[in-house]
C-alpha cells in the first residue's frame, strides 16, 4: 500500500478517517462505562453537585436488595422460556419456509412484520388484545381462561409477556435460520436420502449440526434482547400487577431515575452487565465446540 509522505499528512488522514467515529464511540460508550464503575463507589443522589466515596457500600446494598434479585430471577425465567420458544418457533417456520412451498417469500415477509414496530407500540397493541379482545371472546364463548384480563393476574401477565416476546422476535430469527438453511448443501442431503436416511435422521445427523452457527447467532441475539427487555415491559404490563412482572432492566431504571438512588442503581446495572456478559460469552464459547464442517 502506498502511504502518505510526512508525519503531518499521515496524522491528518488518521484524524479524518477515524477521528469522528472514535470520538463518538469513546465519549458515548467507553467514558460513561468507566465513569459508571466510578459512580458505583459514590452516593450521588442525582441532584447535589457533590458526592462522596462510600467504598463497596453500594454493592452490599445490591446483595441485600431482595427485590433486585427477585426481579433478576424472574427475568432469568422469562429469558429461558422466551429464548427456547423463540428459537423453536423460528426454526420450524424457517424449515417449512425453505422446503420450496408456493408463496414462501410472502410468508417470510409476513412473519417478519412485528419486527418493524417498536416494543412500546407492540405492547400497547397487545394490551388491548389481552384486556379487551380476549376478555370479550372469553365471555361470549364462556371460556373461563379468557374471561378476565390476563394482565390483571400475576402469573398470566408473565405468560402474556412471553407470548408477545415470542411473537415479536420469532420472525427475525426465522430470517436468520432461513439464511442458514439455504446454505446447507443439497447434495449431501440427497445422498443421504438415496442411502435411505429418514427425515428425522437427516435432521439430527446433518441439518442440526450444520446449523450450529445460525443457532449461535440467534440464541446470542435473543438472549441479549430478552435480558434487556424494557419497552415491552413498560407498555404491556408496566411491571404490574403489583410489580409481579417487573423485569430487572425496569428495576434498575426505577432505582436510579425514580428513587434517585444512582449509586445503587448503577451498581445493579453493572452487576447485571457482568452476569449477562458471562452468560452470553459462555453460550457462544461452548456452542462453538459443536460446530462441524460439511
Amino acid at each position: 500500500m502506498i502511504t502518505e509522505k510526512g508525519l503531518w499528512n499521515r496524522l491528518r488522514l488518521r484524524l479524518l478517517f477515524t477521528g469522528p467515529t472514535l470520538f463518538a464511540f469513546l465519549a458515548v460508550m467507553i467514558i460513561p462505562f468507566l465513569y459508571g464503575i466510578y459512580l458505583t463507589f459514590t452516593n450521588w443522589d442525582g441532584i447535589s453537585t457533590s458526592s462522596s466515596l462510600v467504598g463497596f457500600e453500594n454493592y452490599v446494598s445490591v446483595f441485600k436488595d431482595t427485590v433486585f434479585w427477585q426481579s433478576f430471577l424472574l427475568t432469568l425465567k422469562y429469558v429461558f422460556i422466551s429464548v427456547a420458544l423463540i428459537n423453536i418457533v423460528a426454526f420450524l417456520l424457517a424449515y417449512v419456509l425453505t422446503s420450496g412451498l408456493k408463496g414462501q417469500s410472502i410468508f417470510r415477509a409476513g412473519f417478519f412484520i412485528p419486527n418493524l414496530v417498536g416494543g412500546i407500540v407492540l405492547g400497547f397493541v397487545w394490551q388491548f388484545i389481552f384486556s379487551n379482545v380476549f376478555v370479550y371472546v372469553g365471555k361470549e364463548l364462556n371460556i373461563p381462561l379468557f374471561s378476565a384480563s390476563w394482565l390483571a393476574d400475576p402469573d398470566k401477565a408473565f405468560w402474556s409477556m412471553i407470548i408477545v416476546t415470542v411473537w415479536q422476535y420469532a420472525g427475525y430469527m426465522m430470517v436468520i435460520y432461513v439464511a442458514g438453511l439455504m446454505n446447507v448443501p443439497k447434495d449431501i442431503l440427497e445422498a443421504a436420502s438415496i442411502d435411505g436416511a429418514s427425515l428425522w435422521t437427516k435432521m439430527r445427523k446433518m441439518i442440526l449440526p450444520l446449523m450450529v452457527p445460525s443457532f449461535i447467532v440467534c440464541i446470542f441475539l435473543s438472549l441479549q434482547r430478552c435480558f434487556m427487555v424494557y419497552d415491552l415491559n413498560l407498555s404491556l404490563t408496566k411491571g404490574g400487577p403489583f410489580k409481579s412482572t417487573e423485569m430487572v432492566s425496569m428495576h434498575v431504571y426505577e432505582k436510579a431515575f425514580l428513587s434517585r438512588d444512582y449509586g445503587v442503581g448503577q451498581a445493579e446495572a453493572f452487576v447485571l452487565f457482568l452476569l449477562v456478559a458471562t452468560i452470553t460469552i459462555a453460550q457462544v464459547y461452548f456452542s462453538k465446540k459443536l460446530e462441524v464442517e460439511a
Binding site: F33, Y230, A256, Y262
Partner: peptide, 11 residues
C-alpha cells in the same frame, strides 16, 4: 456486549 442499561445512568 455492553448493554445500554449499563451506560444510561452515567451517560
Amino acid at each position: 456486549i455492553i448493554p445500554f442499561q449499563a451506560i444510561m445512568i452515567p451517560l
